[in-house]
Computed example of a mutant assay.
Amino acid sequence: MFKFLLVAALVPAMALAAVDFTSCGAGIPVPDTLTVNDCSGSVCTLTAGEPVTAVASGIVSPVGSATAEAYIIVRVGGLDVGFELPEELKDACVTGIEGGCPVVAGTPFTYTLDDDSLDVPARGTTVEIEVGLTGDGDAALGCVRFDAIIN
């Protein structure tokens, strides 16, 4: 009985933790779920200078890759604001992909972006954040886009 109550209590909390996201383009893999800090719904509120943890679970790449490079693009009104992912977070094989590389075609994996201090120049307005992974030969391994307000 206790196990059932625990599961029943956790299921709504897990559902609320998901962030709405879209694909970055036709054929580019997306995760089954995306969580960003304690956000839920269509617009995530983030605080500049504070840590951001985004977890994309269940990404299934159609291609294998020995390498994986992470990138992030922040857009306001469709225009790139020039945000750069810190150098130490770019090698997703070292920091990000659970279990490291290689990425095996058809095998689900989890990617975590863990940035100690969010510093985006566009504050107080809704931005589109694109986070993606590219592999050998610039193959698209996975990508998501979601909306956020950075205070």
Rank of each mutant, 00 (worst) to 15 (best):
A13E: 01
M1Q: 09
D32W: 00
A17M: 10
M1H: 11
P121R: 02
G124E: 12
C101R: 13
G142M: 07
A17T: 03
E98D: 13
G137E: 08
T126C: 01
A54H: 12
A70M: 06
T22G: 12
C39M: 13
F83I: 00
D80P: 01
T126K: 01
L85E: 05
G96D: 02
V19W: 10
F2R: 14
D38R: 12
S65R: 10
I73F: 03
V103M: 13
S117Q: 14
I97E: 07
P108S: 07
F109I: 02
A9D: 03
V81P: 03
E84G: 01
V76C: 00
A66R: 08
S42G: 11
A105N: 06
T112N: 04
P51W: 14
D147Q: 12
D116Y: 01
G135V: 01
S42K: 15
V103W: 14
A92F: 03
V30S: 12
D114L: 03
F2V: 08
T35N: 10
V120G: 01
S117I: 04
I150G: 14
I72V: 15
M1A: 14
L89H: 04
L6W: 03
D91M: 07
G124K: 08
T112Q: 10
S65N: 08
D115C: 00
A56Q: 14
Y111G: 09
V11L: 15
P102H: 06
F21Q: 07
P108F: 10
G27W: 07
G77M: 04
S42T: 15
D91T: 05
A18V: 09
V7T: 07
G58A: 14
A66K: 07
T53F: 05
I28H: 08
I59N: 11
G100N: 04
A139H: 09
G58I: 12
D20Q: 10
A66C: 01
V104D: 11
D114K: 12
T95F: 02
G142Y: 08
P102N: 07
D38Y: 06
G64I: 12
I59R: 10
F4V: 05
G77V: 02
T47M: 14
A66Q: 13
A92T: 04
C93A: 05
V103P: 13
E69R: 11
L118D: 05
T53M: 14
Y71C: 02
R75I: 00
I129M: 03
V30F: 03
A17C: 06
V131A: 11
D32M: 06
F146P: 00
I72K: 12
F2W: 10
A140R: 13
R75W: 00
A8W: 02
E128C: 01
D116N: 05
E88K: 14
T95P: 00
D80M: 02
L113D: 14
C101P: 13
T47N: 14
V52D: 06
V36I: 15
S40Q: 11
D147F: 10
D91Y: 07
C39N: 13
D114Y: 06
V131S: 05
T45V: 15
A8H: 03
P31T: 03
C101Y: 09
G64Q: 13
V120Y: 00
V94Y: 02
T45L: 11
V127L: 00
L79E: 12
V104S: 14
A122M: 04
I149H: 00
G132D: 05
Y71W: 15
V19L: 11
V76L: 10
V144Q: 08
A70L: 06
I28A: 03
V63A: 12
T95R: 06
G58T: 13
I129C: 00
I150A: 11
G142H: 05
